[in-house]
Nucleic acid binder design. Sequence first.
DNA 1: CCATCAAAGAACTAAATTAGAACATTGTAT
DNA 2: ATACAATGTTCTAATTTAGTTCTTTGATGG
Lengths: 218, 218
Amino acid sequence: MLTPKQYKLLMFINKTIKETGCCPSFDEMKNALGLKSKSGIHALIDALVERNFLRKMPHKARALEVLRLPKLKPSSIIAEEKLKEEALLGATVEIPLYGKIAAGTPIEAIANETDKINIPFNMIHGGEFYALKIEGDSMIEAGIMDGDTVIIKRCNIARNGDIAVALVDDSEATLKKIKRDGNDILLIPYNKDYETRRLPAQRVKIQGILSSLIRTYH
Amino acid sequence: MLTPKQYKLLMFINKTIKETGCCPSFDEMKNALGLKSKSGIHALIDALVERNFLRKMPHKARALEVLRLPKLKPSSIIAEEKLKEEALLGATVEIPLYGKIAAGTPIEAIANETDKINIPFNMIHGGEFYALKIEGDSMIEAGIMDGDTVIIKRCNIARNGDIAVALVDDSEATLKKIKRDGNDILLIPYNKDYETRRLPAQRVKIQGILSSLIRTYH
DNA sequence: CCATCAAAGAACTAAATTAGAACATTGTAT
DNA sequence: ATACAATGTTCTAATTTAGTTCTTTGATGG
């Protein structure tokens, strides 16, 4: 069994290597554990080497290798993670607000906007999300009104019946119900005054599907 | 495992071989890393050979072979973890979810429910708020659909035209557009299939006005 | 009050990076 | 074979970055 510090350090080293491909330096590890001196890191690493969790090349820089990970977590770590999970439920995430949709401008073209909005974390998990402001009333019968903010989950495919962001001819983005019909794709508005558009599949790129909607009054 | 430079070089070598089919020369590597001398490349390659990421044939030109690459976590997982980290920084406010509205039950009667939802702090300021789940389609033309969650700002009066929670005869709560007409109050639905109700003002108590709306798909 | 231990801090040593230049090897063209 | 071009190798040296070691500090629990 590892001490909480040893566990944390081992996890940090493993995470760093998996994410960056590089081993962290003693200074980086020191900062990750919130220590002010590298000497403590040295002792922890020795302990992890002795317990066969790490291998090191002595006197080489950034030359650690994770041999294995512990099966058991120190109980204090478990408690800490539980706290974090709970905190997450009350947290928000900032996602980019790319601009207006159904105005004829492709999302890519306005992706450099810096607007951000905050939404509760539990509304968006398992994917990458962005927000758009609705312009126009082509989806009004689906309860999507002019001025609403929609949260879009980024993805490349939509299932039949999904409401999705479709980019037509790389130049025009709209939010519509998507249906496949043979080699064509139907862009179906939710408004009797608008007509369904039928386009060859290769002219349409799905940019994401509707995940949630936020409206503010007054 | 690797230093940042070693990693960068390894990735460049791997990418070049994959893309062009042949190994880059020392000069090309030097330029790729922005160096002015080849000697550094030599040292990096020695380190990569020592760590078993590369094999080389000495004195042969463009004769490197990538033995393995550090296995990275899928970037989607990294992105989600980063999101979680960021989420912990953003705060939300917890407000009570009192239950469903337009179902004939007064809000007071179900106010003991313990459901809570989190919404971004910036969506609610200056007042006391609570949430309700919409049941029915009487407000569908205002884009308020069955199943939507509405955020209500608690107050006792509504201005003409406000969408508000109205409690009728202390027993039935509905969300409707409010209009005063002399001593009567009109409860106006947003649905042609429903009729406006005219009630004497003393039978109607305003419980709050519509502040925002949240809808989740799927 | 003392023993113990984790952590801090400083001093020291070693490695990594960079540059510049000279030199060696290979393969090809003459 | 000779010369040449392209490429890889080695060396020195300076600078930056990183790892190691040792001493001191401060808190904790008998």
